[in-house]
Computed example of a mutant assay.
Amino acid sequence: MYQTLLTDLQEGILTITINRPDKMNALNKDVVAELGQVLEEVYNNNDIKSVLLTGAGEKAFVAGADISEFTALDAAGGAALAQKGADLVFNKIENCPKPVIAAVNGFSLGGGCELAMSCHFRTASENAKFGQPEVNLGLIPGYGGTQRLTQLIGKGKAMELMITADMVGADEAKALGLVNHVFPLADLIGETRKILLKIQTKAPVAVAKAIACVNDAAKGNQDGFANEIKRFGECFATEDMKEGATAFLEKRKAVFAGK
């Protein structure tokens, strides 16, 4: 079905593997287009409850963008490339009502770091490395990296990484808040699946609203508090809230329908 992606749906988790190991899974226009396609399915297929995004092989999650596609672009072309990526993939992942976790299995650089950061949070293997080395190419991140890295780790460290092009390893990335958990490579996918399976036992409508509210906060949305109140109220109109409250009072496990 896809030329550059592998997809596997089990227990409600859609695992999306970027599959260009010979190119360190670099993002090119085909990968971006196919990620856009698979995200449409994520949004529309009720059998998909959550997403695990990773890279093929043991070396790279996504080691960057395909630079060979850049050389012919002018200013307008570069801006159009970045806009297309934002619309098709990066903003779609960030705003997805279903949880999307990046399982970072190696190099996560440039566009790859940006792809990981657009996910709701990140796990990493012990050999993972993160960085935004675009200034080495006379560029800056164009897929939201300047904004999301600053949101995640703060201005000072984001500034340093962006203008030195330095990389950080998995443990430092965890200390900075860029990743939530570090696992041995062999355990990365299994442990990340466990987190998603736990999330899938929670009320899906509430999870979606929590994602939206946290995104508001990260972006400094001045309507964040008002949006939280509105969404909190909307939860009271759901079957899930009635089930959750009843189950709590009856001292049993809630079974959520996602309605």
Rank of each mutant, 00 (worst) to 15 (best):
T4E: 08
L5D: 08
D8N: 14
Q10E: 15
E11Y: 01
G12D: 05
T15K: 10
K23H: 07
N25K: 07
A26W: 02
A26K: 07
A26R: 12
D30G: 01
L35E: 08
Q37N: 11
N44H: 11
N45I: 07
S50D: 09
L53Q: 04
T54A: 03
T54D: 07
E58A: 09
A63T: 03
A65G: 15
I67N: 04
L73R: 12
G78V: 10
G85Q: 10
I93A: 03
E94C: 01
N95D: 11
N105R: 07
G106E: 09
G106Q: 06
E114Y: 02
E114Q: 14
M117K: 06
H120V: 07
F121I: 08
F121R: 04
R122K: 14
L137F: 14
L139P: 02
P141C: 10
A173W: 04
L176P: 02
L176V: 08
G177L: 14
V179R: 03
D187K: 13
I189V: 13
L197T: 13
K198N: 06
A203D: 11
P204N: 06
K209N: 14
C213V: 11
D216N: 14
A218G: 02
K219G: 04
N227S: 08
N227H: 12
F232Q: 12
A237K: 15
E243K: 13
E243H: 04
T246A: 13
A247E: 08
E250G: 01
K251Y: 05
R252Y: 00
R252C: 00
